[in-house]
Simulated assay, not measured.
Amino acid sequence: MHPLFDFDALTKHRARAARGFAAIAPVLEDLSARLLERLDDTSRRFTDALDFGGRGLTAPVLAARGLRVTSAEFTPAWLANAPGARHLITDPADFALPQAAFDLIIAPLSLHWFDDLPGALIQLRRALRPDGLFLASVPLLGTLQPLREALLEAEEELTGRVSPRVSPYPELRDVAGLLQRAGFALPVADLEEITLSYRAPLTLLHDLRLAGETNALSARSRRIPPRALFPLALSRLPVQEGRVLMPLKLGILTGWAPS
């Protein structure tokens, strides 16, 4: 089966983003904080946490809670943001995580680029100790939808053809089912709807680049896009009171390792 994502391209995008992501860091920290708030909903106390793909922003918050933290990243450059954590460089196919080593795993916006998401969830569940907690956030269907539609319409108008430029995202019921398939107990998937607001539409593209979230689809066009493509697409984004509003539909996933 042809892979949906080009992980080599993603790794390059992430490495480039790690060198200058300060402008987008507050947004990523806010999204991570929304996930970590779920820790306050349980009386369970944790000792050993895995920050899986948190770009080095989640590990310091976990350490401040008194946990021993391991940061796992595919792009080593992000680990520089988590100097106090144990560092682990993982492979996209085999995470090589120690089994039953953690009682808490946090995966903030780090699972949506995997072709084999069920397999990724199984690997993470196996890394949990019995009764360990898994928390993750993933973008869902509807995220960046105005941008997706504007790019498709502009490219078809200019060239007569279209190529995918925004990743497909799953539906909430899909990720809830995947948690159960991966063997998590008490699986829960909640929807949190966030609206990103921009004074200038070009800032949206800059933020996606700074977060390492630019196009890494295997089926993406390798041609140089027409110079008019992005200006035309951005001019068609919906504007409200002088600002471009972009939806982020966030799935908050919770599951426990069976006791």
Rank of each mutant, 00 (worst) to 15 (best):
A77S: 13
V138K: 00
A150K: 05
A82E: 10
A136H: 07
H87R: 14
D131S: 13
S163D: 12
P98R: 10
A101R: 10
S163E: 12
Q145K: 13
I89A: 02
T159K: 12
D94P: 01
A93Q: 14
E149I: 14
Q145C: 10
A96K: 13
A85N: 12
A150M: 11
I89T: 15
E171H: 12
P98S: 02
Q123G: 06
P98C: 07
S137C: 09
L135I: 05
A85R: 10
L109H: 13
F134E: 07
P170I: 02
S137N: 05
P98E: 14
L104A: 10
A154V: 01
A96W: 00
F114L: 04
L135D: 10
L147S: 07
A127K: 05
L88E: 04
I122P: 02
S163Y: 14
L133V: 09
P168D: 05
R86C: 11
P130G: 08
A80M: 02
L111H: 08
A93C: 12
P83R: 10
P168S: 11
R86A: 14
D103E: 11
A120I: 04
Q99T: 13
L135P: 05
G142D: 01
F95H: 12
I89Y: 00
P108Q: 07
V166D: 01
T143V: 01
P76G: 07
L133E: 08
E156I: 15
N81I: 10
L97V: 01
P139S: 06
R148G: 11
I122V: 15
A96R: 15
T143G: 07
P130A: 06
L144V: 00
E171T: 10
L104F: 04
I122C: 13
D91K: 09
R148Y: 06
D131H: 12
D131P: 01
A101H: 09
L104K: 00
L135Q: 10
R125E: 07
H87V: 03
S137F: 02
E149G: 07
L135E: 03
P139I: 00
W78Y: 15
V162G: 12
L140M: 04
E156W: 15
L88T: 01
A82F: 00
P168F: 04
R148L: 12
N81M: 12
S137Q: 03
T90N: 01
L152V: 13
L141S: 15
G119N: 06
F134V: 07
R161P: 00
E149H: 15
G84H: 13
V162P: 02
Y169F: 15
L158H: 04
